[in-house]
Write a protein that binds this DNA or RNA. Structure first.
Lengths: 150, 150
DNA sequence: ACAATCTGGTTCTATTTTAGAACTAGATCT
DNA sequence: AGATCTAGTTCTAAAATAGAACCAGATTGT
């Protein structure tokens, strides 16, 4: 056995996505980044992650163009990690995970964080998949078409 | 160091979700299940996963109520693994990952599978987050409210 | 200006997880 | 009945993770 199995060239976009961000920590780092966390030590404190793991994950996410480094906004000599456009594209992945977690992973009354519309201060509405006509579409109304050229 | 860090009691639903399905294989198993894969040997062949890992993942997903076993539909003595309602709730997580992968992980013209509306045979439309008024809502219009009771 | 502390790492070791091969009991096919 | 298939378990080697220790450069306090 060589290294971990790679899905980097799979024809399935889900597999490719998981090849990049499918480990235990990456999506939590990205969640924190959406939440305004920028500096190495902030990620470390927020996540309780070992420094070595954090360094390797930040490196990987940066290499994949999900994070980029920039001079720190407080004009110190340090750098900070920011989401790129590609990284911000993961917002709905985080939202979908959040809504599923809220639905299935809490006992009634257990405290939890929630995602709020800044304008209204109301919890955001549910993600939904819709047809071209705006009708709700569940997994049962879909299928995977094996492979085709883009 | 003891075991892998656990987020099973985190106040953040994203962390709890990743504690259950945040490894390299679980979401691929679930993707296959959405795609109609049911039997141990089918998952094994489809994923190229080691038997031991597959067995432990199926056990974990079953313990968490995402999969359940049922007598095989072909009336053999074997069992099959089916998504529960909780498991089907992960559909939008898969869709979000798929759309992000399609957007950012392929070079032009590279072959890929795609998700089709069974009725129309057209690719499904994009997931979007909307306000109560039906207006598009991006991550910039949201914030995480720390903790509250449900 | 100098010492103390903070930041963002790297390195080291122990433990855990993963990959893959070999093996197995029971079910099914011929 | 014998061969093969199914759904695993067990074994070993390699890789990843956790945590502690260490370190150079930046910053802060005096």
């Amino acid at each position: 056995m060589v290294k971990r199995v790679s899905f980097g060239h799979a024809p399935c976009p889900v597999a490719r996505a998981l090849d990049v961000i499918g480990d235990w920590w990456s999506l939590l780092i990205i969640r924190d980044a959406f939440d305004g966390v920028r500096r190495f030590s902030e990620f470390e404190a927020s996540l309780g992650i070992a420094k070595g793991i954090l360094a390797s994950r930040l490196r990987n996410l940066t290499e994949h163009g999900i994070l980029e480094t920039a001079p720190a906004s407080d004009r110190s000599a340090y750098r900070e990690y920011l989401l790129t456009e590609k990284g911000r594209g993961l917002f709905l992945v985080i939202v979908a995970l959040r809504q599923w977690g809220e639905d299935h992973l809490y006992r009634p009354g257990e405290p939890r964080s929630s995602l709020i519309n800044t304008e209204t201060n109301e919890p955001i509405s549910r993600l939904e998949l819709r047809t071209g006509d705006g009708l709700p579409l569940s997994w049962a109304g879909t299928r995977v078409k094996k492979v085709d050229a883009a």
